[in-house]
């Protein structure tokens, strides 16, 4: 199939960017979206133009490195990561607009590549359980009821891609936050730091300049791992509880 691509090109963090139009021909339906961009890049290189920069690593939907806003939808029209999106989801002749994640807490580095280190700093603020190596008790000493274990696992599936932020009209990272807080709060090991964790993480979230959540739910619809909106409820509850001191 033949496609028209409008791609955000931006030379660097301090440059202004703009949408540039490219045409690609003979794209196979079996290509992944990123392979389609690989093809474009090979053509650009052949023409002596700089290829489009975009992030990807595992290309199997697990590392969370990739992520593009495709015609207004984070990771495109299917519920999956950009690397697992295939061209059969598009039709011949389609015009596709490709933009980076937009959030002030995710500054653009170049073209479609953004800096998501704010997520790392949120985790640094408390997204962990403090246990030094070697200090762990026997693994089966604390049984975890199946429902809690399952919910913890569901939340732990977050791959930190940032699509939730990209999709949220407020550029809020509450789904990412909610996923981490829920993962750790459901487990007995996570209890001692529960209040401190949520307070620090929310503080950091705001300090990074993410917007507040107004419960819109677009995040959850864009999340490639299907993290449900109710994890934000768990986060809110933990914060409310810790506000009591």
């Amino acid at each position: 199939m033949n496609l028209t691509l409008k791609i955000w090109r931006q030379a660097g963090p301090r440059h202004t960017g703009e949408l540039t139009t490219y045409k690609v021909q003979d794209i196979s339906e079996d290509m992944s979206f990123l392979e389609m961009l690989d093809v474009l890049n090979e053509e650009l290189i052949a023409k002596g133009e700089e290829p489009v920069a975009f992030d990807s690593d595992c290309r199997e939907g697990i590392c969370g490195m990739c992520g593009l806003m495709i015609s207004g939808e984070a990771h495109g029209p299917e519920r999956t990561t950009t690397c697992q999106l295939h061209m059969r989801s598009f039709s011949d002749g389609e015009v596709i607009t490709i933009e980076p994640w937009r959030a002030n807490a995710f500054p653009v580095i170049k073209d479609l590549v953004v800096d998501r280190s704010s997520f790392d700093r949120i985790i640094q603020a408390g997204g962990y359980i403090s246990v030094n190596t070697g200090a762990a008790p026997e693994a089966n000493a604390a049984p975890v009821p199946k429902p809690n274990a399952d919910r913890a696992f569901m939340a732990a599936e977050c791959i930190g891609c940032g699509a939730c932020v990209a999709a949220c009209p407020n550029a809020s990272a509450m789904l990412f936050m909610g996923a981490k807080v829920t993962h750790l709060s459901e487990l007995p090991q996570g209890q001692p730091e529960r209040s401190a964790r949520v307070l620090s993480m929310v503080d950091q979230h705001d300090a990074e300049g993410f917007g507040g959540c107004t419960n819109v739910g677009a995040c959850s619809r864009a999340c490639p791992k299907g993290i449900p909106q109710d994890v934000i409820s768990t986060l809110n509850k933990d914060l409310r509880t810790s506000l009591r001191g």
């Binding site: 359980i129 190596t133 200090a135 008790p137 913890a152 090991q189």
Partner: peptide, 19 residues
């Protein structure tokens, strides 16, 4: 395994809550 469980790694569990 002890270390990872203490960190909160959500390994599969059976209905009794054990690994």
């Amino acid at each position: 395994i002890d270390q990872c469980v203490a960190q909160g790694v959500p390994f599969a569990r059976d209905y009794g809550g054990l690994l």
